[in-house]
Amino acid sequence: MDEKRPESVLSSPPAAATSSGGRTTADEKLTPTPECICRGTPPTPEQNEGPYYKPYTPKKTSFRGDVENGTPLVLHGRVVTVDGFPVGGALLDFWQVGEEGVYDETGFRLRGHQFADADGRWRLDTVVPAEYPGRTRHVHVKVQPPDGEVLTTMLYFPGERRNHLDKHFRPECLMDVHKTAEGWSAAFTFVLDG
């Protein structure tokens, strides 16, 4: 039974010509069409870093070992330009609270940085942050392309009862959140201007 591939208006040509005159054989595979972010997507909004940012965080892609409790959360996504091109090697620096709603100000618990891969993809294994006085659930992040300006922003969870009460909340920074067997999965694409 043949599997049909969806046709794309913005399909890219194969990475290399095939030996069968443009058709693939059983031993050859086409390069998948990359995810498309349409031109004109507005840049991710800048937000303040707040009083709890700390520089010189350790490089890590998981905060799970930083806490004993909490609902598992996988944050993941891409960093792209406003034209939809991936920003490989972008620096992402995350910080957040755990289920107690308190930032670690003496160490680097629930704090760390990583680099996006060549396709602009990133992933952070963490826990769902708590609400705390005056704030809805959120995760702070700084994103910096190689040799570019730093974007400081926050990521938010949809459907939170306190979103509309938080003066910092930006609907443009809502993540796409889904429940999984292990906890939660949340996706976000950072769109950088310039």
Rank of each mutant, 00 (worst) to 15 (best):
K54Q: 15
N48D: 14
T25K: 09
D27A: 15
T44Q: 08
P42C: 07
G70H: 07
P72G: 04
P55G: 09
C38W: 06
T61Q: 14
D66V: 04
R39G: 14
C36S: 09
K29S: 15
R78S: 14
T57V: 10
H76S: 14
T61Y: 01
G77Y: 02
K54G: 02
G40V: 14
E68Q: 12
E68N: 11
V74S: 03
L30R: 12
V67D: 04
G40N: 13
T71H: 02
P58L: 05
R64W: 02
P32H: 06
F63L: 06
C38G: 08
V74F: 02
I37Y: 12
G77N: 09
C38M: 08
D27W: 07
E28V: 12
T25L: 15
P55E: 11
T44A: 06
E35D: 07
E35A: 13
P55F: 00
N69E: 14
T61V: 02
P43N: 04
G65W: 11
L75T: 04
Y56A: 10
G70Y: 10
A26V: 14
L30E: 04
R39H: 11
G70C: 05
Q47T: 11
A26P: 04
Y53Q: 09
E49I: 08
S62V: 05
P45D: 08
L30C: 00
H76G: 15
E28W: 05
L30G: 00
R39T: 11
P32C: 04
R64H: 03
T41Q: 10
R78V: 07
K54T: 06
E28F: 08
P34I: 01
T44H: 10
Q47P: 01
R78N: 12
P42T: 06
E46L: 11
D27I: 03
E46Q: 15
R78P: 03
L30W: 01
T33C: 02
P32W: 12
F63T: 02
Y53H: 14
P45V: 12
P58A: 03
I37K: 07
G40T: 12
T33D: 11
C36T: 08
L30H: 00
E49Y: 03
P72S: 03
T33Q: 04
D66E: 04
R78E: 13
E49N: 09
P43F: 08
G77T: 11
P51F: 07
P45M: 11
N69V: 11
K59P: 00
T24Q: 01
P58I: 00
C38Q: 01
L73Q: 13
D66A: 08
R78M: 13
H76V: 04
T25A: 11
N69S: 14
I37F: 13
P55Y: 01
F63S: 06
L73V: 14
P72M: 10
K60L: 07
I37N: 03
E35Y: 09
H76Y: 13
E28K: 03
T31Y: 05
I37W: 04
T24E: 06
G70I: 06
E46T: 12
E28C: 11
E68Y: 05
Y56K: 03
K59A: 15
V67A: 06
T41L: 00
K29F: 09
G70S: 07
T71W: 01
P42E: 12
V74T: 13
P51M: 02
G77V: 06
Y52V: 13
T33G: 01
T44V: 09
